[in-house]
């Protein structure tokens, strides 16, 4: 379970601390059976990558809104890029977060 601290595995996984935070948020909000450190930063979040679907997309929007006050949108042309991977989602959050 995420405990908010950096672990040696996390450093070894190639995730930045911000990416690890978002990975923990996703894993806990979606009850995924995967360690946050094990998420490939460049792998697709939906379909073949982590295998997320539209129910997850809504849950993720809720969790990201609560944790970072960042509102995810679908009418956005960049949407495909934002959700392309953990790395792109984290970059979007970092750019728009207010807390």
């Amino acid at each position: 379970m995420p405990d908010g601290t950096m672990t040696p595995t996390a450093i070894a996984s190639g995730l930045t601390p911000q990416e690890l935070d978002v990975a923990r948020l996703i894993v806990s909000a979606l009850s995924l059976e995967v360690a946050p450190e094990a998420i490939e930063p460049e792998a697709p979040l939906f379909n073949e990558g982590l295998g997320l679907d539209s129910i997850d997309a809504l849950e993720m929007a809720l969790a990201v809104s609560k944790a970072y006050d960042v509102k995810l949108r679908s009418d956005d042309e960049r949407n495909h890029r934002i959700f392309a991977s953990l790395r792109s989602l984290t970059a979007h959050i970092e750019k728009h977060r207010t807390r």
Binding site: A57, K71, L72, R73, S74, D75
Partner: peptide
């Protein structure tokens, strides 16, 4: 007409 999926949309 548009797609509206996320709560803010």
């Amino acid at each position: 007409a548009g797609e509206a999926f996320f709560p803010s949309d």
